[in-house]
């Protein structure tokens, strides 16, 4: 499915600037990724909880 160029550009910018993590607070993300990759991954598991 074709998406508008303006939307694709916005996603590209958003991905570049938004260090988003889906399973934690956006406000409190003090630890670098390597410290958090124990029991809780940076990104939301969605499925894949097996």
């Amino acid at each position: 499915m074709k998406l508008p160029k303006v939307l694709l550009s916005a996603i590209a910018v958003g991905v570049a600037v938004q260090a988003t993590t889906s399973c934690g607070s956006k406000k409190s993300d003090p630890k670098p990724k390597t410290e958090q990759q124990g029991k809780e991954p940076m990104n939301c598991p969605g499925c894949g909880l097996g």
Binding site: I11, G14, V15, Q18, A19, T20, T21, S22, N43, C44, G46
Partner: peptide, 8 residues
């Protein structure tokens, strides 16, 4: 999802 790595 709203996840920088998936979206990249």
């Amino acid at each position: 999802n709203l996840d920088a790595d998936i979206l990249a």
